[in-house]
């Protein structure tokens, strides 16, 4: 008697178990693939593009992102360093990228 088989007991069909966190950013219609906002991406790209060994100065960041406020740049920098994309070097105003891509 094999009638005891349980076809898919206890297995709910989640299509995307890992996506719950991405839902926090709803309202941003054009998120890049890496999950950063466009502003965060711009900041990250500028820091990535800096060839100096000590990294990019916050002052340079400000000069190149004149459409952003100092507060929003700081916010992006904070976020990026929290995520591990960038880190401060010689002082808290210099940042380098960890991303090798």
């Amino acid at each position: 008697n094999k009638s005891h088989s349980q076809p898919s007991a206890g297995r709910a069909s989640f299509s995307n178990p890992g996506m719950s966190e991405a839902g926090n950013f709803s309202g941003n219609s054009f998120l890049p693939a890496n999950g950063l906002t466009p502003a965060q991406n711009q900041v990250l790209n500028l820091i990535k593009a800096c060839p100096r060994p000590e990294g990019l100065n916050f002052h340079d960041l400000k000069n190149q992102l004149h459409h952003m406020t100092v507060a929003s740049i700081k916010q992006a920098v904070d976020f990026l360093s929290n995520e591990g994309h960038i880190y401060s070097t010689v002082d808290d105003d210099h940042f380098k990228s960890t991303d090798a891509e």
Binding site: N82, E83, G84, S88, V90, K96, T98
Partner: peptide, 20 residues
Amino acid sequence: LVRIQRNKAAALLRLAARNV
């Protein structure tokens, strides 16, 4: 300079933790 290395190591750890 130790500070820079430490910051970098910490950042890489955070990044790695994110990517798990």
